[in-house]
């Protein structure tokens, strides 16, 4: 055994000395010539930005394959977003909440050879390819027509009929600001408005921020479009919420006119709560009521839609 250690010590000493010497040219070579080899060249960045500036329509979404070299965004015109940095985690079912019904998907690819695999994996149909110097922009759409959504909470929150808090007989209205958010108090967290949250644990989706107050009911009322029959309602607490020592659940109730169609507790856990409900025929309004017994870190968010 002693002999083994002596040999190991002798060998490792020599080996480490040689490795140390080898690390010098390796470091020099890597940091001078290799460390930036994956970056996009300016012409490709220019190409990505040009294609997006000329072809992007509101409701479309963008996925760059290289999600850490974002120099191309500097050349984008206004109103060209969202840019999702999560192509690696993307699954076909994610599109339901990431884009609008008829929205298209732009993929900014470094490797044009990935097109077929990507389309197959994400169940998309190619619309068009745009060549750029060292890459490709792929424009795609859903292979099967997506569910037509009459009302999308995250998109239409500024079109809600009213948002208010009730406490016993008191009623306190929130006011719609120019940014499309319902401001309910001076606290900057006490509003109802557009936000994002990870419902699937991977990619931040569009959502509505709706922080409840202790023992008060937050009411969000929408006019239901004609033909509304199905409700899809998802909710999740943001990270600071589910990681908080406060474990008070958030109670959610949904009424179609005066009929209760959904009721559940969003426990203080990491995962999201996904529900579906039928909307009675001819119902005119949808009222979402959110409350909790302890509002500390109840960073509650929801998304979903109403379909025919």
């Amino acid at each position: 055994m002693t002999d083994f250690f002596a040999k190991f010590y002798h060998f490792s000493g020599r080996a480490l000395a040689v490795l140390f010497i080898a690390s010098i040219p390796l470091s020099l070579f890597f940091w001078h010539f290799v460390s930036d080899s994956g970056e996009l060249d300016p012409a490709t960045e220019e190409g990505f930005a040009k294609v997006l500036n000329e072809n992007f329509k509101e409701g479309d979404i963008i996925f760059p394959e290289n999600d850490w070299d974002l120099d191309f965004t500097k050349k984008l015109n206004n109103k060209i977003f969202p840019v999702y940095l999560s192509l690696k985690e993307l699954k076909s079912e994610d599109f339901e909440y990431l884009k609008e019904d008829d929205g298209r998907v732009f993929f900014l690819l470094n490797d044009p050879g990935r097109v077929e695999t990507l389309l197959k994996k994400l169940k998309l149909r190619e619309i068009r390819r745009f060549d750029v110097p060292k890459g490709l922009v792929l424009l795609a759409e859903d292979a099967v027509a997506a569910t037509h959504k009459l009302l999308v909470f995250s998109r239409d929150i500024d079109k809600a009929r009213e948002v208010y808090f009730t406490k016993k007989d008191e009623k306190r209205y929130c006011r719609l600001n120019s940014g499309g958010d319902w401001i309910c108090a001076k606290n900057n967290w006490n509003y109802v408005g557009r936000f994002t949250a990870k419902f699937n644990g991977r990619i931040p989706e569009r959502a509505v921020w709706a922080h409840p107050l202790s023992k008060e009911n937050l009411n969000i009322v929408f006019d239901l479009p004609q033909g509304s029959r199905h409700l899809v309602f998802n909710s999740v607490l943001r990270e600071a919420g589910w990681m908080s020592p406060n474990k008070a659940p958030v109670h959610v109730t949904v009424f179609a006119d005066e009929t209760k169609i959904l009721e559940y507790k969003n426990e203080s856990v990491r995962n999201s709560f996904r529900h579906k409900a039928e909307i009675p025929q001819g119902a005119k309004t949808l009222r979402i009521v959110i409350t909790t017994n302890d509002d500390r870190q109840r960073h509650f968010t929801f998304n979903g839609y109403v379909a025919p």
């Binding site: 965004t73 015109n77 060209i80 557009r194 994002t196 949250a197």
Partner: peptide, 15 residues
């Protein structure tokens, strides 16, 4: 990373 798009929606630009 969600803040990137939150800023884009609020400011009207991702540039």
């Amino acid at each position: 990373e969600n803040v990137f798009n939150e800023i884009a929606f609020e400011f009207g630009t991702a540039a």
